[in-house]
Write a protein that binds this DNA or RNA. Structure first.
Lengths: 252, 252
DNA sequence: CCCGCCTCAATTGCATGCACTTTGTCGCGC
DNA sequence: GCGCGACAAAGTGCATGCAATTGAGGCGGG
């Protein structure tokens, strides 16, 4: 039902892919909040596979930045810093501008129909659970990307969109995520008209507004961020001092 | 020695990371050509680990698009299509424009020194092996990205740069890869001057020239591409016919 | 009462073993 | 001579087992 493009990277193997998709969805629907623990055994038991598979799935998700893998410690859902959230949105804006640039005026009727159907679904889900509407909004962007028919672009847009979704659950106020179905419709319209500059500008402003609406102030040290704050000081990398210095400075 | 930013995603665990880095490097230096087989046992034996670890490493590399994982078949170094190569470069241009935009006028002296040192190394390696100079050219861009101090951006730039590197070994003529050390120097200069529009334009043209110089015509069916050509026709996905149709059309 | 140490359960890191799938090859029948 | 089917070798898919590391709670000392 969900027009999810089966990314044929690695996880299509079978069970690993199932677990990945399930966890991704649980994360972006905020059923799993950032910081939630993900022990290998529990996952394995829950999905009826061995730890080996669960572990592999966690590896994939870690590569996507959705979970954090610490050596000899339980894996947890990633807790991106506020700065990382901003960075993710910056990248997302560029990538999605590229998407709409490639798509402007080139959509088939069937594709336009699919997009409209999706936005209708978004509208329909407006009254329902918050989590679902967030997921649908994200999937709209992924659907758009999949129409470029560039597997690489699809992959990156998906990844970064998921990451942004994750940050929303960290830094946005509860009900501020009216991800603008109206704006989605406007984008579709501009795409159909083939107005390339306009659709790029629309997309940029759309994402920018989501980011600024969602990413409220740097969150005055909520919870156990102490560890995170101290992290850059405890680096023992030994290579490239330049970058480290810059990191410390930037972290304020 | 190599100023490689230790991406703390997943593979930093230990052995998996070692294998990943080794394979990445072997791939971008073209010691492993696209299509080369990567059996789990051989890798495990070569690196002194079990198949489990080798398998995990292959999984990570597959997630990066460097190797291709086919169910029940030996993993191989990825063989991107010509179109995918173009797409990768398109994405890369956007990402690296973002890099230099963030960096313009904000480099510390130490960072400038590091960049200059790297370009010097590129110059020095000019007479040596082709593979090394290609790797150094790629690493220049990664070094640049690492200075943004945005882990996400570093990751994406690295990945896509590696992918581009991979395509070069497929579609470029042997000695056309003078990746323009001069252009690297020009970019550094513009960065120092803080001329944002100019450095963005420089970067765009630099990458564009690499792409067009390297990605010569769609390669008149070299080798066993038959399979790849037939692939889209043999799809049995069953979901989302729209995209599939577009794919067939686009594949010409 | 608080702090440090020590032991133990929980959990990961990794290797090995077995079943299944694919592939290359040999032999048989036409 | 040629296609075709069975067999063997190679390789992956996955589970399980064991060692190592970590985190927590209890215990004793200050």
């Amino acid at each position: 039902m969900a027009p999810r493009a089966a990314s044929k990277t690695a996880e299509s193997s079978d069970k690993v892919g199932v677990i990945c998709r399930a966890l991704r969805r649980a994360i972006i629907e905020q059923a799993l909040e950032p910081g939630a623990k993900l022990p290998e055994d529990s996952l394995g038991e829950r999905f009826g596979v061995s730890r080996t598979i669960a572990r592999h799935a966690l590896g994939q998700l870690a590569a996507e930045g959705l979970v954090e893998l610490r050596r000899n410690r339980i894996a947890v859902v990633a807790t991106p810093s506020w700065q990382e959230a901003r960075d993710a949105f910056d990248i997302r804006i560029e990538l999605e501008r590229l998407v709409v640039r490639q798509l402007a005026g080139k959509l088939t009727k069937a594709q336009v129909a699919a997009l409209n159907a999706h936005v209708d679904a978004e509208d329909a889900a407006r009254g329902g659970a918050d989590a679902v509407s967030i997921r649908l909004a994200t999937e709209f962007h992924i659907l758009l990307a999949s129409m470029t028919n560039s597997p690489i672009l699809v992959r990156y847009v998906s990844e970064v969109a998921y990451r942004c979704c994750l940050t929303l659950s960290l830094y946005s106020r509860p009900h501020s995520s009216e991800c603008g179905v109206t704006e989605h419709r406007a984008i579709i319209a501009a795409l159909v008209k083939g107005d390339e500059p306009r659709v790029m500008s629309l997309m940029q402003r759309h994402l920018d507004s989501v980011a600024t609406r969602a990413l409220v102030a740097p969150a005055p040290q909520r919870g156990r961020d102490l560890l995170d704050i101290l992290a850059p000081y405890a680096e023992e990398d030994g290579a490239e001092r330049v970058v480290k210095m810059a990191k410390v400075v930037r972290a304020r």
